[in-house]
Computed example of a mutant assay.
Amino acid sequence: MRKMMMAVALGMMPVGAEACTYLEPFEMKNIAGAELVVVGEVTGYQDLGSPWGAALVTVQVDDVLKGKAKGEVTFIWNSGMAQGPHESRATGRVLIGAMDGGRIAVSDMAPDARPDLPSIVQPYCGEVWMQPATKATVAEARKALE
């Protein structure tokens, strides 16, 4: 009986994709909360193969809107509950909002794969702070950072 109760309890627990009822959209006004905001061309993507989802995104930085960075920078993209790293999102010219070293909140269920690298902000139930760097997007980011 105890095993059956445990099986039922485990079956009712939400998994990562079911934990968030919807994906909170990215809002540019939040970019001011990042410690590092850059614009650049993605030059590399490497899935780290972790069970919780993590990837390295390498960017040739063209412009720094907040913080300090230059040249080629490698970011860690740790998974959230509603969205995880995927290569199709990390292509072309991008605007990235990141924390200098490590993610904002770390748990045992989703540890920080590389706390030594700047971490792309990935809210648990929100859209990643990596957007295509169109002229309009970059202009909106500059305004939000004023």
Rank of each mutant, 00 (worst) to 15 (best):
residue 75 F to R: 11
residue 66 K to A: 07
residue 85 P to T: 14
residue 98 A to R: 12
residue 96 I to C: 07
residue 95 L to G: 03
residue 96 I to M: 07
residue 41 E to G: 03
residue 37 V to S: 03
residue 59 V to T: 08
residue 46 Q to E: 15
residue 82 A to H: 04
residue 61 V to Y: 13
residue 88 S to W: 11
residue 70 K to Q: 13
residue 73 V to W: 01
residue 35 E to T: 06
residue 43 T to C: 04
residue 51 P to K: 11
residue 70 K to R: 12
residue 32 A to T: 14
residue 56 L to M: 05
residue 88 S to N: 14
residue 30 N to R: 14
residue 96 I to H: 07
residue 61 V to Q: 11
residue 33 G to P: 00
residue 49 G to D: 08
residue 33 G to S: 12
residue 60 Q to S: 15
residue 48 L to S: 04
residue 41 E to F: 05
residue 96 I to K: 02
residue 83 Q to V: 11
residue 91 T to G: 00
residue 26 F to Q: 07
residue 29 K to S: 10
residue 100 D to L: 15
residue 55 A to T: 12
residue 74 T to L: 02
residue 106 V to Q: 12
residue 67 G to C: 09
residue 29 K to Y: 05
residue 105 A to D: 11
residue 105 A to I: 15
residue 71 G to C: 05
residue 68 K to C: 00
residue 84 G to Q: 06
residue 105 A to Q: 11
residue 107 S to Y: 10
residue 89 R to P: 00
residue 63 D to G: 00
residue 41 E to Q: 14
residue 80 G to L: 08
residue 34 A to H: 10
residue 56 L to H: 09
residue 50 S to T: 15
residue 107 S to E: 05
residue 96 I to L: 13
residue 71 G to L: 11
residue 81 M to D: 09
residue 92 G to E: 10
residue 41 E to K: 14
residue 37 V to R: 03
residue 24 E to V: 14
residue 84 G to D: 05
residue 67 G to M: 09
residue 35 E to I: 09
residue 29 K to L: 00
residue 70 K to A: 11
residue 105 A to V: 14
residue 34 A to T: 08
residue 91 T to R: 15
residue 42 V to P: 05
residue 44 G to H: 06
residue 42 V to E: 02
residue 65 L to R: 05
residue 77 W to L: 14
residue 65 L to K: 04
residue 33 G to C: 05
residue 60 Q to G: 05
residue 94 V to E: 01
residue 28 M to N: 03
residue 80 G to F: 11
residue 57 V to E: 01
residue 98 A to Q: 09
residue 28 M to V: 14
residue 86 H to P: 00
residue 82 A to R: 08
residue 82 A to T: 07
residue 58 T to Y: 03
residue 51 P to A: 14
residue 72 E to H: 04
residue 47 D to M: 09
residue 57 V to Y: 01
residue 60 Q to K: 15
residue 61 V to K: 12
residue 85 P to W: 14
residue 93 R to Q: 10
residue 73 V to L: 02
residue 33 G to Y: 03
residue 49 G to H: 08
residue 63 D to Y: 02
residue 103 R to G: 13
residue 79 S to H: 10
residue 103 R to H: 09
residue 62 D to I: 05
residue 75 F to S: 09
residue 56 L to E: 14
residue 47 D to P: 01
residue 55 A to Y: 04
residue 104 I to L: 09
residue 102 G to V: 08
residue 52 W to V: 00
residue 89 R to S: 08
residue 85 P to E: 13
residue 73 V to N: 02
residue 79 S to V: 10
residue 63 D to Q: 15
residue 52 W to G: 00
residue 32 A to W: 00
residue 71 G to Y: 09
residue 39 V to I: 07
residue 51 P to R: 15
residue 57 V to P: 01
residue 83 Q to P: 03
residue 75 F to T: 12
residue 43 T to P: 07
residue 95 L to A: 09
residue 45 Y to I: 06
residue 106 V to M: 13
residue 44 G to Q: 04
residue 64 V to P: 12
